[in-house]
Design a protein around this nucleic acid. Structure first.
Length: 416
RNA sequence: GUGGCCGUAGCUCAGUCUGGUUAGAGCGCCGGGUUGUGGUCCCGGAGGUCGGGGGUUCGAAGCCCCUCGGUCACCCCA
């Protein structure tokens, strides 16, 4: 019989690495909650229609959705992203605006896996509904940036662009479409150009690079309102001292974006998967999902990639797990059994060795456990109702009565 | 979905080109170095259907085909 392995493109995260994931999430939670965002927990799957509205010709919807029919024949989909779910929740519960939420959790896309790209991947992100003040764009962009910086990441670039309002966007799409129609594009891009010319700007094919470099800029086709709005966002970022690059080629993959679009790029990741996260304004999304017109902006960050970038920048590394005591019992094991329980109830972290292994073997285990103290119970201690407390850093050892052990350890741990 | 590279002990890898007795190393793990003491050192040990299946051959980790997985690029995006 063959044994099972995890499916393609998904993976296990084991301890101690899981502690790093939890630390990342809790740091993100802290950053968000200090800015007035509350946590949103939404379902892992939704009616597939929720995601279909993201744009019928985006690959996320047309090719990569993990969709299925449930037992009643309803078409459901594992969420490929969280903005649509958040928008659906917003419409369903009509909370008061501004509605500021953060989230964290797995998303699913049926893609060709490679480093930094998995079929189940973890994102953290925020959404801010009901505000179209340009300073809200600045708050959101800055929050993501500060979070990434707080992890110790240095080698990053913030890219900012605007797609303008729908008037600007369609004017630009027309101009760009005309330009592309007369250019020598790769075969695949010719097709893309017909459906959504903006998306061609994302192409990395060698053949398209020259065409893209010479393409008209979306910034030249903004209405004056859209241009003013972008200027306000930029001056807000300037005021906060956040440096960024204006990237007129930055068009985000999902169709619901309007106005501000941004991306956090890691320069330390050499692969094509170097975008740590991105987001933008999606003022039309709520309406597309059947709600009343509401402004919105948010971002999502890929936790898998963030940790890859942390690896290459050697930051946010796994800290050693610390343990207060490790119990070594070379008698009948009764002391290990009761002591570990007693210490844990008193708030002292305690681990122990199993089986009747030699003192030497148990001391090795104690050392490996990173415990500060080893509690040793041998025949002498058992006879006298004591326990030997060995400081594993200084190697100093004292014998303490079992009745006084909790108090003794508490005071010594407090002194550290 | 398309193409390139890769898959040997828990981990990192040698061995594959030039098929040939019991498949190796380092780290890790387990045990020992005499009465009950970890980290260093010394000695010993366990652990592998060579990703899986089929084929060629007297003989396959090695050659061929298929398949699964990883990785890189396109694509897509976080």
């Amino acid at each position: 019989m063959s044994s099972f392995k995890s499916p393609r493109g998904v993976r296990d995260i084991l301890p101690p690495e899981t502690a790093r994931w939890r630390a990342l999430e809790s740091q993100f939670a802290g950053v968000c909650e200090r800015a007035g965002y509350g946590e949103l927990v939404s379902p892992m799957f939704e009616d597939a229609g929720v995601f279909a509205r993201l744009g019928e010709d985006t690959a996320v919807v047309s090719k990569e959705m993990y969709d299925f029919f449930d037992k009643k024949g309803r078409r459901m989909a594992l969420r490929p992203e969280l903005t649509a779910s958040a928008a659906r929740a917003f419409i369903e519960h009509h909370p008061e605006v501004p509605w500021k939420v953060w989230y964290s959790g797995p998303q699913f896309r049926y893609e060709q896996p490679q480093a930094g790209r998995y079929r189940q991947f973890m994102q953290v992100g925020i959404e801010l509904f009901g505000v179209d003040d340009p300073h809200s764009d600045v708050e959101v962009i800055a929050l993501g940036w500060e979070f990434l910086r707080s992890l110790g990441l240095q080698d990053m670039t913030l890219l900012v662009n605007t797609l303008g309002d729908s008037e600007s966007r369609s004017a630009y799409a027309g101009v760009l479409g005309d330009y592309l129609a007369e250019s020598e594009l790769s075969e695949a891009s010719v097709e893309t150009a017909l459906k959504n010319p903006l998306r061609v700007l994302d192409s990395k094919r060698e053949q398209d690079q020259q065409v893209i470099a010479g393409a008209p800029s979306c910034l030249d086709h903004l209405t004056s309102e859209a241009a003013d709005r972008f200027a306000a966002v930029r001056s807000g970022l300037d005021a906060l001292g956040i440096s960024y690059e204006v990237s007129p080629r930055l068009v985000r993959g999902l169709d619901y974006y309007t106005h501000t679009a941004f991306e956090y790029v890691s320069n330390s990741l050499t692969s094509a998967q170097n975008a740590l996260g991105g987001g933008g304004r999606y003022d039309g999304l709520i309406e597309a999902l059947g709600g009343t017109s509401t402004a919105g902006i948010g971002f999502a960050l890929g936790a898998d990639r963030i940790l890859l970038a942390c690896d290459t920048e050697e930051t946010f590394l796994l800290s050693e797990t610390l343990l207060d005591v490790f119990i070594v019992d070379i008698t009948d094991g009764q002391a290990a059994l009761t002591l570990s329980q007693e210490l844990r109830s008193a708030g002292i972290s305690a681990d122990r060795a199993w089986g009747s292994r030699s003192l030497k073997a148990q001391m090795k285990a104690a050392n490996r456990s990173n415990a500060r103290f080893a509690l040793i119970v041998g025949t002498d201690e058992q006879a006298s109702g004591t326990v030997s407390v060995k400081d594993l850093e200084t190697s100093q050892q004292t014998q303490i009565s079992q009745d006084a052990i909790v108090e003794h350890l508490q005071s010594r741990l407090k002194q550290l």
